[in-house]
Design a protein around this nucleic acid. Structure first.
Lengths: 217, 217
DNA sequence: CCAATTATGTATCGATCGATACATAATTAT
DNA sequence: ATAATTATGTATCGATCGATACATAATTGG
């Protein structure tokens, strides 16, 4: 690729990952250039040459965070056979990621852009747009459930999506506050009770849906 | 009180409220001294003379936020006759505050200390301690429900509290993302279904609890 | 070898951060 | 009136913010 010129002395991908974890933990404005350069082990000159600016670096870090390896949401929604299983897997896989001891706690998209100076408000808008996209994906998956018959027609899928995303976003705060994996899954147990209470309408048949798990496997 | 000396030319209480709203909206590090002095209309000298430091000012702002006027949680938990009504009122009154157009959206205690430099981590710890205190209050109210008979003995009140606080914290993010008051209450409708699914055990009588509201008061 | 290209190292930019020194104004106690 | 006390206004502190200028090192293309 970049054959010409003096070769880069550091691993750009590894550096991006270090930056992602710093932004993830401390947020955009809570992460300074000196924190980034110290953690990566390069000078600010090299960082700017490789990534352009702090805002560009953050954008790349968010892209990395949202890539398939890091974000279990897409695969949970797409591969689960029923809408109920899709929601539950989305919640449980994300919860596992939120309390993973190898990475900062909670969701970067939720947590990294909340405390911003006016000059950097666009960062918050970008992350809010990503949350809106997740909301739309959940609604689409629920609508697919309606189309496929495992959700009764007439169900307010938008409200249902908002409810489960509220739980998901709340779990980011719980994770930041140190909650255990077990407790997170117990919370999800309770959140899934809503599904059974709402979807099992008296005049509708329930097609699929596994029983609520108790522990969290 | 402060009879001696030159009288203060600004309203300290009003200034504190302005500071509270700025910290509430932008977080601790997202609010600079110049933002504070510009919004209040005083010089940094006067601000330091009146409040000591940025950290002290923030502490007073959090105290104001947690005072009875601003925090409906305590009154909801204490005055509601049943545990179910206490939880539902806590959620609905807080949700109303989160989307109140006269104040920043969401909960200051949840949102203001998430993106911090290492030097200011104590701010995050202080707010986390307040969230833990809320958790303990909810558990205490649920335990009281067990003692008074409207919750079956053996109920995992700690898990129940974590669940409802997860929903409450998630509503702060939803509020930041612009959700309507109606949608917030619809989310709470769904959250309260968990109560009925868990508390109405087949071998236990339900003593109290109003039916789930649909719209939101 | 030489030119072109790309990255690095040093040193620093102007702006802003939170915080203060110092002199002055306005009030009360005596 | 004078001293003591408290607040204000001006001007600025050292540190850090994100970002760059400039010279040098290391590689490829010719």
């Amino acid at each position: 690729m970049s054959a010409r010129g003096r070769p880069r002395r550091f691993d750009r991908t590894a550096a991006l990952r270090v930056a992602m974890e710093l932004f993830w933990e401390h947020g955009y404005e809570g992460t300074s250039l000196s924190m980034l350069t110290d953690a990566i082990g390069i000078t600010s000159t090299s960082l700017y040459a490789a990534f352009g600016s702090k805002g560009e670096l953050f954008r790349e870090a968010v892209d990395l965070y949202n890539s398939a390896d890091w974000s279990p949401t897409d695969s949970a929604l797409e591969t689960s056979p029923t809408a109920r299983q899709a929601i539950e897997r989305m919640l449980r896989d994300n919860a596992d990621a939120y309390v993973d001891p190898h990475t900062p706690r909670g969701c970067m998209v939720v947590l990294a852009g909340l405390n911003l100076t006016s000059a950097n408000e666009y960062i918050g808008h970008r992350l809010a747009a990503l949350r809106r996209r997740d909301h739309d994906k959940v609604v689409a998956r629920l609508d697919r459930g309606v189309a496929e018959g495992d959700i009764p027609p007439g169900t307010d899928t938008a409200a249902m999506a908002s409810y489960y995303l509220t739980v998901l976003h709340g779990l980011s705060i719980q994770a930041r506050d140190g909650c255990s994996r077990e407790l997170a899954h117990t919370v999800i147990d309770r959140a899934m009770l809503t599904w059974d209470a709402l979807i099992r309408q008296p005049d509708h048949e329930v097609v699929a849906g596994d029983p609520p798990r108790s522990g969290g496997g």
